[in-house]
Design a protein around this nucleic acid. Sequence first.
DNA 1: CGCAGCGCCTGAAGGC
DNA 2: TGCCTTCAGGCGCTGC
Length: 267
Amino acid sequence: MPELPEVETVRRQLEPLVLGRRIVEGWGHPSAKFSSAPLAAGPTIDAVGRRGKYLVLDLDDGRQLIVHLGMTGQLRMRPSPDLDPHVRAWWVLDHGDVLELRDVRRFGRIGVVQAGEYATLPTLAAQGPEPWDPSLDHGGLWTRLRRSRARVKTQLLSQRPIAGVGNIYADEALWRAGIHPAHRTVTHAEAARLLVALRHVLEQGIANGGTTLRDYRTVEGRPGRNQLELGCYGRAGLPCGRCGQELRRSVIDARGTTHCPRCQPPR
DNA sequence: CGCAGCGCCTGAAGGC
DNA sequence: TGCCTTCAGGCGCTGC
């Protein structure tokens, strides 16, 4: 499931392949999530950016091509279109290469919008700062978390306190910070530990080229390596690497969750 | 306005 | 072996 580190890995690999290239033609699956892909045809790609889990390609006509990878989305470059039935959109670039979005479960999404106008992508519009935003400190994270009484893990997954965190990195960060995922409030000290932990696990994820549990692939078609470094997510029944207690699986607001009962005690 | 609940999707895994 | 059921989950939408 592509979260910030996976999308950033894709962004870095995609940038040299598409920057300065003109989009000649496009096609999108008829579903509303992908059907706007052809609207991106015409302009040249000015910049390859990212906000949270959203890939943002600036076009030189003042618009942006937004790609969200959902659960199973993969971007790749091909010398020509292929017959893979799971390709949901493609764009022919001016040298003839094809940028393809493959997305088995169709949880991904494409938008072609005027730059910065994200009314059709409400989560993008409402999401919090990038994790490394220099104006974000632990007091700011504490304030943002205090705006809602939802469980801290659910808040992180909402993208509103901070952008780009999904199920894997939420479990990892809460584990490292020693915060029970079902808590509805955090102390200033906990917010400080959580911000450090979030930055750490996201940086580590990027350094390892993302986490591949099943579907995620880089633009080069390779899996990431961060799954080898996870300390908590997906490790229920195994001993906690910090205290030895058996990690426990539960369901929090319909999301599978792993935590350590000793390092992350309930209040 | 906040938020819980639901639907979207399909392959994998488990039960029988 | 094969059929059926269940599960996974980010996000948009609806309705309270």
